[in-house]
C-alpha cells in the first residue's frame, strides 16, 4: 500500500496543541513545504522539538514568526531573533537542551529507553533539577526521553513504502525523529516505486514512516 498522500490530505492531520518534532539544522533538511502548510492552516499552541529555530524565513522559522508555537525545545535559537524576543517577553517558553543531549533524548524516546546518562551539562545550569548517577566512579546526568505526537521530516527520496534516503548534511535529526513520534510525515523531493531503492541504501526504514508527501525540490 502506498504511503504517499497529497498536500491537501495533510491538513486534516494537524491539530492545535500538538507536540511536533521537526527535522533540520539551520533550515537544511527541514520540511519547508510542511512548515508552509502549517502556517497556512494556522494551527496554534504547538510544542516544537527541533535542533534550532533557524532564521525567521527558513526552516521552522515562519511558524515562530506566525506565533503558532507556545513551547520550544531546542539547542539553539540565536539565529532567529523572533524566538529570543518571544522568550524574553514571556510569550513562548524555550527549553534549551545541548544538541547531543537532544539527539539522545529523542533516540531514547524512540528506542524504548527510560532515558540516557550523559556527562554533557555537568556543573552547568543544564544539571538543575536533574538526577545525577555515579557509574564506575564517573558522574552522569539522567536525561529523560522525548516523544511527539507528530514528526515532520524531510528526506531527499522515498519509495512508496516510506523507505528514505537523505542527501549530504540534510540528514541531521530526521532519522532519529522518525523513531519517536506517533505519526511520522515526511516531505520528499522524489518518490519512486517499491523495489527501486536497494535495501542497503535505505537510511530510514519505511516501517517507521506513516505518510510521504512529494513536494519537489525547493531551493
Amino acid at each position: 500500500m502506498s504511503k504517499v498522500i497529497s498536500q491537501e490530505e495533510l491538513v486534516s492531520l494537524f491539530e492545535d496543541k500538538a507536540t511536533i518534532m521537526m527535522g533540520g539544522f539551520m533550515g537544511v533538511g527541514a520540511p519547508t513545504s510542511l512548515v508552509r502548510i502549517l502556517v497556512e492552516q494556522g494551527v496554534k499552541d504547538l510544542t516544537l522539538i527541533t535542533s534550532d529555530t533557524a532564521t525567521p524565513d527558513t526552516g521552522v522559522g515562519p511558524l515562530i514568526v506566525n506565533r503558532q508555537v507556545k513551547k520550544i525545545i531546542a539547542s539553539h535559537i540565536g539565529t532567529n531573533p523572533e524566538t529570543g524576543r518571544q522568550m524574553i517577553a514571556g510569550e513562548t517558553v524555550v527549553e534549551l537542551v545541548p544538541q547531543g543531549t537532544l539527539a539522545e533524548r529523542i533516540r531514547a524516546g524512540g528506542a524504548g529507553l527510560g532515558g540516557i546518562l550523559t556527562p554533557t551539562g555537568l556543573g552547568t545550569v543544564v544539571e538543575e533539577g536533574k538526577e545525577k548517577l555515579l557509574v564506575n566512579g564517573k558522574e552522569y546526568l539522567l536525561e529523560l526521553p522525548l516523544r511527539a505526537d507528530i514528526a515532520l521530516l524531510k528526506a531527499y527520496k522515498a519509495d512508496k513504502a516510506g523507505n528514505l534516503i537523505y542527501r549530504q548534511s540534510a540528514r541531521n535529526f530526521n532519522p532519529i525523529m522518525a523513531l519517536a513520534a506517533d505519526l511520522v510525515i515526511v516531505e520528499v523531493e522524489e518518490v519512486v516505486e517499491v523495489g527501486e531503492l536497494k535495501p542497503d541504501e535505505v537510511m530510514t526504514p519505511g516501517i517507521l514512516v506513516d505518510k510521504v508527501v512529494c513536494c519537489g525540490r525547493i531551493s
Binding site: D52, H76, I77, L96, P98, Q99, G100, T120, G121
Partner: peptide, 15 residues
C-alpha cells in the same frame, strides 16, 4: 543580553 543557546558546545567540551 544574549541567550542564543548552547548548540553543540556543551557536548564538545564534555567529550
Amino acid at each position: 543580553k544574549m541567550v542564543p543557546g548552547m548548540g553543540g558546545a556543551m557536548d564538545l567540551v564534555a567529550g
